[in-house]
Amino acid sequence: MQREGNKNMKESKFKFNIDVKTYMMIIALVAIWIIFTVITGGSFLTARNISNLFRQSVFTSMLAIGMVMVIILGEIDLSVGSIVGLTGGIIAIFDVWLDMEPVLAILITLAVGILLGLWNGWWVAYKKVPSFIVTLGGMLIFRGILIGITKGTTIGPMSGLFRYLGKDYLPDYVGIILGILGAIFIIFNQYKTRKDKLKYDFEILPLKLEIVKTIFFVLLIVLFVLIMNSYHGIPVPLVLLLILMIIFIYITRNTVFGRHIYAIGGNKEAAQLSGINITKITLLVFMLNGLMASIGGILLTSRLNAASVAAGQNAELDAIAACVIGGASLMGGIGSVGGAIIGAIVMASLDNGMSLLNVPMFWQSIVKGLVLITAVWVDISSKKKGKVV
């Protein structure tokens, strides 16, 4: 009886404490889509354009997954664009010049990405060199190596597997199966999360709102699959992104390693005093960031069907912008994988919509820069208001 009373109190209390900021970027994304749909006369929300939009966002999202962990840690990585270019060049050399088995080539390239992340992490974690300087140097070093090993030439075309990874679509029936699995996962996850919160006396949504929320997410999955299947199907790169997103959301939310990342970014001194191995965590985060950059390099090379010395230039800026727009704080301790991906989709939406309107490139850069500054300003302003209150 007492437990039920506590449950009702927590539910009623939650009604007055809904955090609007959590949903702010989703609201902003929907607003952007509505605006572009109206301006383009409905062209923006066609199945073909939505499919292209998500394909465009995959690359930045891949980098943002790794980058957001670095930012939560309180560090920065300016070398991911060069890691993308270098690993993309390596996979092209293996495939085109050496005719290596594709799976083996992918595994070696992923290992190279991890080693490049290890290089950055070693300097930051063990030698205490600021990550800004280490990764700025890495950006120059890795780009130089790329130019050297490729002799400044474009390498292509790629073999069949890579074209499949970069450009192909899943059959409609596979998309339906994945949609069903996704809906089951959402329902199970919502149920388990609610059960765990009740177990530890955390605040929960009223049951009716919880059901509405679950139905909303299931309907989103159904709508997404229908839209994708009405064009060519779900893009293969998007499926890879969704798998990695689930994995890293679990890592950051439900593992000791993930909690340690937040603890270090929130207060490094307190984390050290509590016994957290800051050196080890920092090294691992940079290695994971290198891994994600190498996956991004493989997918970019596969999508372009060739590797070039210019591949990945300024990609680190897009990744950082996606994380910040998605709610990550450059001071560390705040951010999420889901938010970073939403930030990447926001940026891709701006690029896509302005391209449909034939907006000059310089205006696209100006708009994205203004959006980034505004996102940081809103974050800082909300924190100041919180302190005043």
Rank of each mutant, 00 (worst) to 15 (best):
K385Q: 13
L115V: 12
V324E: 08
I251G: 04
L107K: 06
V285F: 03
T37F: 04
T282V: 08
I35G: 05
L170E: 05
N254R: 14
G338Y: 02
G296A: 10
N229M: 07
V367E: 01
I50G: 06
K208V: 15
N17W: 14
Y23C: 04
S131Q: 01
K13M: 15
A47D: 06
G266H: 05
N289V: 04
V212Y: 14
L110C: 05
K127H: 08
L283E: 06
K167Y: 11
D201H: 13
N305K: 13
I72T: 03
N352V: 07
T282R: 02
L104I: 11
G275S: 09
I281K: 10
C323S: 07
I147H: 10
A375H: 07
K208Y: 10
R55K: 12
I90F: 01
P360R: 03
M100T: 13
L115I: 15
D379W: 00
T37I: 04
A344I: 00
K197M: 15
L357S: 06
G113V: 03
S57Q: 10
I249P: 06
L209W: 14
G41F: 12
R143T: 00
M245W: 11
V324F: 03
F286P: 01
R48S: 15
T282P: 07
L370S: 14
S308G: 11
W123N: 09
Q272P: 12
V80T: 03
L78Q: 03
I186G: 09
G160C: 05
G42R: 06
M100Y: 12
L207S: 15
S355W: 12
Y169V: 08
D99E: 15
T40C: 09
D318T: 02
I373C: 03
I246Q: 05
L219V: 13
I243A: 11
T214I: 09
K15H: 08
S365N: 15
V225N: 05
T374R: 02
N189S: 14
I177K: 07
F202V: 13
V337N: 02
M139P: 07
T154C: 12
I221L: 02
P171K: 06
P360Q: 10
M158K: 08
Q190T: 13
H260W: 12
L78S: 03
R55G: 07
N358W: 05
L241P: 01
I18N: 02
T37E: 13
V84M: 07
L357K: 07
I27N: 04
I221A: 04
I145D: 01
K197T: 13
T135G: 01
V367W: 01
I278Q: 09
A125F: 12
E11F: 12
G335I: 02
D318Y: 11
